[in-house]
Amino acid sequence: MPSQLPIGTLSQLARTRTDEAARKLAALRDANLSAARKLELLLQYRQEYTRQLQSLLAQGATTAQWRNYQEFLQALDAGIEHQRAAAAQAEAGLDRGRLDWQHQRRRLNAYETLADRIRRQDAVAQGRRDQRASDEQAARMAQAGIARAGEIR
């Protein structure tokens, strides 16, 4: 049974690491969704302000109004590009987190498979020991029976 101690420790450590990787993956997934939502919101703002500018131009906007909208849209475009980069970074982080979780999960499965194999081998060995002990007990009882039968005659 001492062989089970190290594999049990390794299995528990792998389980802890897998759980940590799963929590990290959940946080990365949330960050990825948040970044994607922010990007979508900025793109919606961009469309709305573009429509407003077109409407304003159709009504005869002043140069100052047109310049203000253009500057705002340029700033919004810079924000969109920044958020695209953040969203791409969040997606890459999510991919790395997913790979780490999968790696940890495979390691845990390997340790659990090995532990199961050890348990089965131990059970088979114990079964053989029990059978041997039972056979020896039966042989002793049979010997004792033959010896008693010889004494009675």
Rank of each mutant, 00 (worst) to 15 (best):
L33V: 01
A90E: 04
D30H: 12
A115V: 06
W101D: 02
T63C: 00
A138D: 13
R132P: 00
R107K: 04
A123M: 08
G150L: 15
E81Y: 01
A142L: 11
R51P: 01
N68S: 14
A27S: 12
I146K: 13
Q54N: 15
R148V: 07
R132C: 01
A27E: 14
A147N: 12
R15W: 10
T63H: 10
T18K: 12
D77Y: 00
D19Y: 01
Q102M: 10
E136A: 10
Q54E: 15
L99E: 14
T9Q: 11
G60Q: 09
Y111F: 15
R128S: 03
R107L: 06
A64K: 12
G8P: 02
R153D: 13
V124A: 10
G97V: 03
W101V: 02
A36L: 09
D122I: 02
A115P: 05
R98G: 02
L99F: 06
Q102I: 04
A139T: 12
Q12I: 06
T18M: 15
M141Q: 15
A85K: 10
A36Q: 14
G93P: 06
R105W: 07
E112G: 00
A21V: 07
Q104S: 05
H82Q: 15
R51M: 05
F72I: 02
M1S: 13
A123C: 06
E81M: 03
G79Y: 01
R153F: 11
R84D: 01
Q74W: 00
W101R: 14
N68G: 07
